[in-house]
Amino acid sequence: MGLVLALLTFAALAAIPLFPDLVGGPATITLFARMILYAIAAVSLNLILGYGGLVSFGHAAYLGLGGYTVGILYAHFISGSPFLGLIPGTNQLLVTVPAAMLVSGLFALAIGALSLRTTGVQFIMITLAFAQMVFFLFVSLKVYGGDDGLIVRRPNVLFDLNLRDTTTMYYIGLVALAAYVWLVARIVRSRFGRVLTGLRQNERRMAAIGISTYRYKLVAFVIAGMGAGLAGALMANLQRFVSPDMLAWTKSGELMIMVILGGAGSLIGPIWGAIALVGMETALAGWTEHWQFWLGPILICIVLFARGGLYGFVASLLKRDGR
């Protein structure tokens, strides 16, 4: 059933740009592209949050680091001076995206190595605090725009594709999403994944069968950070702009909500969650300036009353029909 739902989801997503009129014109394609990129970030968070039970409240930091990697490499590409006098700038997507994932992964390694020494509520506070530290770092980097952010005037280059075209960006995002979901699907079924899901269910048991849990958590934390870096790198190309907003703590909260809303610990639930939350925010924002006034209580109700998220809801419906 999971596989069918996943294939249906991706088929629907692939079909969206074919019917621009149905979904409300090209402007909407940009909106859908944003949903797709947030979906990548949500799927990556789900790997540690949903499968591993690690409540990381700082995931937007890796999203922002990915975005800033693209932005900073572009700025040095334009100015011609290498970054730190060592690394030349570039606008090649096939370079910037892996670089973004590397940077996010390295930060995740450092932050994870410290945060994972603790558990529970301390872990939540610490991941939030370190993300805030990264936020302040970019706010203070006046060279790269500080508070105002950094404009990426032209998107990166990938072969002969025109990345200014939102439909092209949309499909690039979709391919990246599919690849990352495939990766996560393999990981959670692997030996490593068995340990990861075991950690969520009962960490004491894992120690009692001889598993040193720290290393497993750290590796998962890094894989998740790299996924968010991928999302951030593509987002910088879609919006042609990066700013500290991208790694604000509220963004981390939104990513967590996407996961929970869609269904933590399910493969494609977070994709639905990202689409639903971005869609809901856009709809509310089109209706009232004070959309957060309504979103807040909606969130509380989701947490209090809707366990299992959208995916859990659909799965239970299908099960009932099946009998």
Binding site: V55, F57, I124, G253, M256, I257, I260, Q292, F293, L295, G296, P297, I298, L299, I300, I302, V303, L304
Partner: peptide, 12 residues
Amino acid sequence: DQVLATFGLILF
């Protein structure tokens, strides 16, 4: 759940 619900409170 506590984090998410109280996050909703903050927005509100």
